[in-house]
Write a protein that binds this DNA or RNA. Structure first.
Lengths: 272, 272
DNA sequence: ACCCAGACTTGAACATGTTCAATCCGAGGC
DNA sequence: GCCTCGGATTGAACATGTTCAAGTCTGGGT
């Protein structure tokens, strides 16, 4: 995971690595401000940040090595050289560790995708690059990825990107898809209103891919990659076709449905 | 909830449901045979069945009264008048209780929907009836429904209707949607190949509604109902439009994608 | 130098899902 | 009537997420 983080810091929007970034942190101005959710308090000292990062780091390593269920909070604490209570001081539950990780991965993904996108203008290609980049970034964690998904599917949890309106990871991802669109040759040709909806829809599309990926048991999640290769051009085609007259009525209906029922659910105003 | 279960066992298409499939089960030919998954062994005595049912019944009541997390296995056992160990004898984990419940609800839904469908031929109407029936059947359990969903989202768990190929509840639901289609005036007009895919797709559509419903916090899940009222006609329209020439190529692509990548995942052969 | 407030840290205690060796019990064989 | 076998049942022990009252450390005020 670090290779990805190591190579970034170039584009304006990312520049994270996410670990330490916080209050008067030295570097990384645009750093994820969310890094601090799930803890009992805002970090006050430098040492605090370090401890927090150490715990997260350790947890991630153990999760990767043994899987989520098999990794006990006691093991994490022991391995990190802190007490159990201390771990809970920074992460109010075991699930929040996932959140911390998911946030970080999202930033890595955004950075990696932007790097790969440079120089490509074709919309379908750009979309495929962005999604494939996600799969690559997530690959090392496929083993315990189920936990992300369980978490995402729980409306009671503030960790869910579906229900938590201000989920920073989602905002980052949506923003990436906005760039996927605006950087493509397709953007100027589209109906402005539709263009406004698309970033969120493309994020939903990513969520579908994630669902597919989570259940994918093939080596290197090759099947998911094939699915993306095959489905992405179709998605692009549908978006493209939406410009034509025959599809006008159905597109209008779909747009209304999405504006009224889908976007509000994930925290966008339904205002036209 | 039992009134619903009592009314079924009528249609001729089902009769399959391969859960226990093996040794000749005693009674209840059309009854949910799935009731027995998650237990350590096949039921041998009558008393066994009764105890199992008692525990499930008690658990459901407590889940409804206090929610899933708040209901401890100890409480369930105590309330049912059995030991904790005994509960585990019949349900190998707390999650299997959910499964037991979900299975049952699915059968109730199928029965209720069939009753309501009688006499209606319009496809859009039939689809809306089937989906709305699900919402009605599930309504009492909305409080702890999140747990269904978490369970469904976990690929590691055999409880997931997505990954578990022989999930009997899914088979039942898919069968219901097949009837929704075949009983409609639309059926004979459709391309046979597409008609073959539709029951599964309509089930996936239901899963989307369920996702929406799980996150829905409005009273009586009114918002989900509105969403169904609004989205169902569109779904029907898309299916209807698929017959026309302009849409031929995109429909063909979509069909291929679904056949190759979606259906195999939920246990259907990709064979054309 | 002292003290204080508040961030940080600790580990034992608690709550609850899960396991398991031991026991109960009823039907069938003798 | 007694024995035996295996399903059914028990409850104490265990594993692990979580809490919390108490202790430690640090920087700033006096």
């Amino acid at each position: 995971m670090d290779d990805l983080a190591a190579t970034n810091g170039t584009n304006g929007t990312s520049g994270t690595d996410g670990t330490t970034g916080a209050a008067g942190a030295p570097e990384a101005p645009a750093a994820p401000p969310a890094e601090v959710r799930g803890s009992r308090a805002q970090p006050k000292t430098d040492k605090s940040e370090q401890t927090r990062a150490l715990i997260l780091e350790t947890a991630m390593r153990l999760f990767q090595e043994r899987g989520y269920e098999k990794t006990t909070m006691r093991a994490i604490a022991a391995e990190a050289g802190v007490s159990v209570g201390n771990a809970y001081y920074y992460f109010s539950s075991k699930e929040f560790l996932i959140q911390g990780f998911y946030d970080r991965m999202t930033y890595e993904h955004a950075a990696d995708a932007r790097r790969r996108l440079a120089g490509t203008r074709d919309f379908a290609e750009r979309l495929e690059i962005a999604v494939t980049s996600w799969i690559d970034c997530a690959e090392p964690y496929h083993e315990f990825a189920a936990q992300f998904f369980r978490t995402a599917a729980d409306p009671a949890s503030s960790l869910s990107p579906f229900s938590n309106e201000s989920h920073p990871a989602r905002a980052t991802a949506v923003e990436l898809f906005r760039e996927v669109l605006t950087g493509s040759e397709l953007a100027p040709k589209l109906d402005a209103e539709l263009a406004e909806l698309l970033p969120d829809l493309l994020w939903l599309n990513l969520m579908i891919v994630v669902l597919y990926w989570v259940f994918d048991r093939t080596p290197d999640t090759e099947r998911t990659r094939e699915y993306v290769r095959r489905s992405t051009p179709m998605v692009a085609r549908i978006i493209n076709l939406s410009r034509y007259r025959v599809f006008r009525p159905i597109v209008r209906d779909a747009k209304g449905l999405i504006q009224d029922f889908i976007l509000p659910t994930i925290g966008k105003s339904a205002a036209k």
